[in-house]
Design a protein around this nucleic acid. Structure first.
Lengths: 236, 236
DNA sequence: CGGCCTGTTGATCTGTTTCAATTTGGGTGG
DNA sequence: CCACCCAAATTGAAACAGATCAACAGGCCG
């Protein structure tokens, strides 16, 4: 694990600062954060930490995609989330992490030692406020995912997943309708509670129905988003 | 909806104060909380609020069981949680609630107007700290539930559910192994992602295997908790 | 060039749902 | 107090979605 001390200007030039928690700090507070942060690169498929590890570090994803997962004793896996740049990682008010975090592709993280981070929380209340707001958004997303896993069929699950990725991609200014899937079919399957085969079959069904195009397995073009919305079936 | 102004001494005599968020306040801070709280009774099956309602109130459950749920457009329902006395309700940092909250049985709530509650948060930082810690515990539970919904079979799901209730009942000092189920089979089914019939069948299987006894549908005796633990399959 | 990992497709199998019929139990009114 | 009523729970039989098992294609890297 390579941890590099961050140069003094990292935060100022960080292009995801507004979307990350750091965004609540104003220019004269920023150096305080800068002082406790380090950068870390994680290679594809490498773990950031494992479920059960002592939770002594907090992270901010600045590049790449991080996969969160939990395992059953016999090896069945549930992916509980995918983190993208701007996402916060490591909020654990027990002493140990509740899930494993691994890099899907080449990942870069901002690393905060827990003690120092908590000191900053006390110093800057708006920081804690922001964190609570984050946590509560994550809770809402988790509940959407409960609905997906508990009550949706295969097609509905995949549709919801693609829309979710689409929404997040749009926030980060991608070409509308073009989606990049850094994760494998197996990762997707473990996220939406299916098998690789069913995910694959469902993709081909949606292609047959002209809802999607798949120039390559990791590149999706959403041709008829309204059909996906319909399938996702959210009540609004 | 009946909202009763609370008498001056409510909080002092509240028997769930230690387990609720209010527990972080010391005796001289308590009156400040008392000043903004009201009591509310909710009859069985009545809604506290609906998904989408403006989130202008926060609650603390002091008696009974509250069911949280989300619906799909066609009526399929996912129960996202059951709240018991001491549980906090209404943490929503959007303007509207992300789920519906309904009384399972006779429920009593402490009601906090959002504005006033937030003012208290600013005034007592340890209050906000506690809330963040709650949120992060809930997040951890939600992830357990994702694992359950996404990767467990019917028997494993029911086992996990009963163990969860058991753990919570033990915290509140019940006779070990005796469980009360205030919710219906249908509520359970919608919580663990099954149908009423499958829940019922799985109960009878567990009774046949002498893991449980069912003196009545709402009263469970756990005879062999180790079998349930085994079925739940948590990795520890 | 060859091997391997990922993805796709096909055939079969199984756990859970669905549909349908009973049974049980708690609450209500006579 | 008892009989009735209705919702909830249980049980059975049939259907189905998705899993499992298996084969094969394609791209990438050594």
């Amino acid at each position: 694990m390579v941890v590099v001390r961050a140069p003094g200007s990292v935060c100022e030039t960080c292009d995801i600062r507004e979307t990350a928690i750091c965004g609540v700090l104003n220019p004269d507070e920023l150096p305080r954060l800068n002082a406790i942060v380090a950068a870390q690169n994680v290679a594809p498929q490498q773990a950031v930490f494992f479920e059960g590890d002592p939770a002594d570090t907090l992270y901010n994803v600045t590049r790449g995609c991080v996969r969160l997962s939990k395992m059953l004793a016999d090896g069945r896996r549930q992916v509980t989330g995918f983190l993208l740049p701007g996402d916060f990682l490591g909020l654990a008010y027990y002493e140990s992490y509740a899930y494993t975090a691994e890099a899907v592709d080449a990942v870069r993280l901002c690393v905060f030692p827990r003690e120092k981070f908590q000191a900053l929380l006390t110093e800057f209340p708006q920081f804690e406020r922001r964190l609570l707001s984050r946590a509560s958004n994550e809770l809402a997303s988790a509940q959407d995912q409960l609905l997906l896993l508990g009550r949706k069929g295969a097609k509905e699950k995949l549709a919801s997943f693609l829309l979710l990725l689409g929404r997040r991609a749009r926030l980060r200014g991608t070409v509308d309708g073009a989606l990049d899937l850094p994760m494998t079919r197996n990762d997707i399957a473990d996220y939406i509670g299916l098998t690789t085969e069913t995910v694959s079959r469902t993709f081909t069904k949606l292609v047959d129905e002209a809802v999607l195009e798949l120039p390559s397995p990791q590149h999706v073009l959403i041709k008829r988003p309204e059909v996906l919305e319909d399938l996702a079936g959210e009540f609004h």
